[in-house]
Amino acid sequence: MAQVVTCRVKFIPLQLEFIATFVYVYNMKEDRKELWDHLSQLSGNHKEPWIVLGDFNVVLHREDRLGGNPVTLVEVTDFQNCIDNCGLEEIANSGSQYTWNDKQDARIFSKIDKVLVNGEWVDQMPDITAHILPEGISDHCPLVVQMLQSFSRKENQDREAMRRIQMQLQLTPLNATIQKEEKELSDKFRRSIYLAESILLRKQSNLD
């Protein structure tokens, strides 16, 4: 469909696979509804790490616009509902505060370009950040998505979660629900260790 391209990506250095959806959303509110429905349908079709990024052509928060008309609830409701339905969250970003301006005399600045990820991405993938670069001669600022080199925070969180559930399992060793959760958390911690080691090896090889 228009407004969106979705593909499966394999990040070979870490042997990770994820779904990436690139958006360029229509300007008119009514024309965007088809995309919100499509994204909601995509979110139900897979439970894999998923990143959604691009020009959404709509703000999400009051502080996302400077100048022009004030941000209204009606303006942001459809986008917010889509994010909630898909289980997405915006990743941390740095650099410019706004991603678009109209280049007119009385400037309007907006943050309409975003990078969103689902819960599976947060649980299974290395931490990432989006850096918003100056716009240059364009009216949009480029977004550079970078994978953070340190994976120790996620590894520690997964280790602690595994430790807690294993303590519960010692108290109720025949509890099938806790057994299943312990296996899932152990697998998750194992992936975290692998990712941390892979990133460290890549960092070391770059220094050689």
Rank of each mutant, 00 (worst) to 15 (best):
Q149C: 13
N85S: 14
D139Q: 12
N93F: 13
E182P: 01
D139W: 09
L66M: 12
S40K: 09
R65T: 05
I51D: 02
Q149T: 10
W36K: 00
L53H: 04
S43I: 06
L171Y: 04
D55F: 06
Q168Y: 11
Q204P: 03
Y26C: 14
R62L: 10
N45Y: 07
V4F: 03
V115I: 07
E30K: 12
A196E: 14
Q124P: 02
L171C: 08
S150K: 01
L88R: 06
A196T: 08
V52D: 00
I178M: 06
H140Y: 05
D208W: 14
N206M: 12
Q168R: 12
W121I: 01
I12F: 02
Q179T: 07
I108T: 12
S152D: 15
L143V: 07
Q3H: 05
S205Y: 13
R65W: 02
D102H: 06
L169P: 11
N69Y: 07
V4K: 10
P142N: 06
D55W: 05
A20R: 05
N156L: 07
K10F: 11
I165H: 03
F22D: 09
F109I: 03
H61V: 01
G68C: 07
S43Q: 15
D123E: 15
G54Q: 06
N93W: 11
P126C: 11
Y98E: 13
L73N: 12
D113V: 04
Q170T: 04
A2T: 10
R62A: 12
P49Q: 11
E89Y: 08
G67Y: 04
V58Q: 13
S192A: 15
F151K: 00
N93H: 15
A92Q: 15
L171K: 11
V5C: 15
F109V: 10
A106G: 05
G67Q: 05
I165T: 07
Q15L: 12
D78I: 01
A161D: 06
L174T: 10
R164T: 07
E181A: 09
L42I: 06
E90K: 08
Q157G: 00
R164A: 08
I108V: 15
L16M: 10
E34I: 02
C7D: 14
D102W: 04
V25L: 03
P49V: 04
Q146D: 14
H61Y: 14
Q149L: 13
E34V: 06
E155Y: 00
Q97W: 02
R202C: 11
R153V: 11
S96I: 00
V52A: 15
H46I: 06
F11V: 03
K111Y: 01
K10A: 10
M125C: 15
H140C: 01
G68Y: 01
G44M: 13
L39M: 08
G95I: 08
Y26P: 04
Q166N: 15
H131C: 07
K111H: 08
D123Y: 09
I51C: 15
N81G: 08
R202F: 00
Q15C: 06
E197N: 12
T177F: 10
T99K: 02
P142G: 14
A20Q: 12
V25R: 03
S198I: 00
N93R: 10
D31K: 08
L42G: 02
